[in-house]
């Protein structure tokens, strides 16, 4: 299974999903015209990944802004990863937010309430 990688654009985030080490990253802005169309290839890739996940999977989220439909797609991504939490496979999410961006922090807290994966809230440092 190949890695999934998409470079960021002003409207879409960088998607780096490494199947070799199980480290995934979503970073940047997510305000595509059609979020479903944008995230569909990634969701299909995740369908394959969750069939044979790594022992430890880490999803790093460093979003600075996302629209409402992107948030639904994020839920879908998290839900797919929830399915991978079986047979002692560990999944973790690190949700990074800017210290001054309360909205992004609160969004992370919201996801934490409904997703059954441990979400660690972390303040984004400048060099990150």
């Amino acid at each position: 299974m190949e890695n999934f990688y998409l470079e960021s654009t002003p409207k879409t985030p960088r998607l780096s999903f490494n199947n070799d080490n199980g480290i995934f990253e979503i970073s940047g802005r997510s305000i595509p015209e059609n979020s479903i169309e944008f995230y569909k290839p990634l969701l299909d890739w995740l369908d394959q990944y969750v069939k044979e996940p790594k022992k430890e999977t880490l999803l790093i989220v460093k979003l600075e802004y996302f629209n409402t439909s992107s948030s639904k797609c994020l839920v879908e991504i998290f839900r797919k990863l929830e399915k991978a939490q079986k047979d002692s496979k560990q999944i973790a999410i690190k949700w990074y937010y800017d210290e001054e961006d309360e909205d992004m922090q609160e969004s992370g807290e919201d996801f934490k309430e409904i997703i059954k994966i441990p979400i660690e809230m972390l303040v984004l440092k400048e060099e990150e």
Partner: peptide, 11 residues
């Protein structure tokens, strides 16, 4: 999800 979407939309 509706709760999340609502609060994100509000924000």
């Amino acid at each position: 999800e509706a709760k999340i979407l609502t609060s994100i939309s509000d924000r």
